[in-house]
Amino acid sequence: MGLRHAAAGVTGLLVAAGLGLLAGLLGADDQFWLRAGVFAACTLGPACGLGWLLFVAGRTGPDAVAHPEETVEHLWWQRSAAGSFLDLMVVGGLVLTALSVTDLRVDAATVLTGLVVLGLGDVAVRMAVLGRREA
């Protein structure tokens, strides 16, 4: 682990702590530390990702891939996303048909949440299957 990785980690911790403190200060009640801790914990992952993008990404040494779109993981992602899109179109059409025929009223947020969860799960399963099959 080099200096770039340490800088990425420190950046992530500082950004998350800053966002947590800001959220704690903006609260109306007296639960400053609870709010600050929860926000810092929730933003730690994305903040570390920001640090990684700033200090590590694209600078991993001479064996770094010049064209990331040519990696096998990227090809798996493309295939998984394309298959998931088709699955979402089929499921969306079936749900739309069922709702039209039965005249059932469902909140749009419920339907959209279901489609997003289905899409994320579908891509994750397809990626795992492709990774197992072709690795």
Rank of each mutant, 00 (worst) to 15 (best):
V72T: 15
L88Q: 04
G83E: 12
A66Y: 08
R132G: 01
L120I: 14
G92D: 01
R4E: 10
D30W: 15
E69K: 05
L14T: 12
V129C: 01
H5G: 15
E70V: 08
V129Y: 05
A8F: 04
D30E: 15
A17M: 11
W76K: 05
A40C: 14
A47K: 00
L22H: 08
A66I: 10
A41K: 09
L44K: 06
A16F: 01
L13Q: 01
S84I: 01
R105V: 15
A23D: 02
W77V: 10
V15F: 08
A16Q: 00
R133P: 02
Q78A: 08
A17I: 10
V95I: 05
G121P: 01
A128C: 05
D103Q: 15
W33A: 10
F85W: 15
T60F: 06
G2V: 11
D107N: 14
W77L: 15
V91M: 09
G83Q: 09
V90R: 05
A124R: 07
G119E: 00
L130K: 00
G2Y: 12
L86N: 02
G27M: 07
G9C: 00
L86K: 03
V95N: 00
W52H: 00
S100K: 10
E70K: 02
G20I: 01
A17H: 04
L53G: 12
L75R: 13
G45T: 13
A57T: 11
L115V: 14
D122K: 07
R126C: 05
G37E: 00
H67G: 09
R35F: 00
D63I: 13
T60G: 10
T110E: 08
R35N: 00
V123F: 09
W33R: 10
V116L: 10
G18Q: 06
A98R: 06
P46Q: 04
S80T: 03
V72S: 15
G45W: 11
G121V: 06
V91D: 01
L34F: 07
G114V: 03
S84W: 01
A124D: 05
R4S: 12
G83V: 10
D63A: 13
A57F: 12
L19D: 02
V56G: 03
V90T: 12
G114E: 08
A109T: 14
A124E: 03
L13V: 07
F39I: 02
V72E: 15
L14Y: 10
L99V: 07
L22G: 08
A109D: 12
T113M: 13
H5D: 15
L53Y: 14
L22E: 03
L112G: 08
D107Q: 14
D63Q: 12
M1N: 12
L115A: 15
G20A: 04
W76M: 08
L120K: 11
P68S: 08
R59F: 04
G93W: 06
Q78M: 13
G119K: 01
R126Y: 05
A57Q: 13
H74D: 13
G27E: 06
V90W: 06
L99W: 07
L118K: 07
G45K: 11
A36L: 09
M1G: 14
S100C: 05
A109P: 05
L118V: 07
P62W: 03
G24M: 13
L50Y: 04
L50C: 04
M127S: 04
G83M: 11
A23P: 02
L14C: 14
V116A: 10
P46W: 03
L21R: 13
G61K: 05
R59M: 07
R59K: 11
R59L: 09
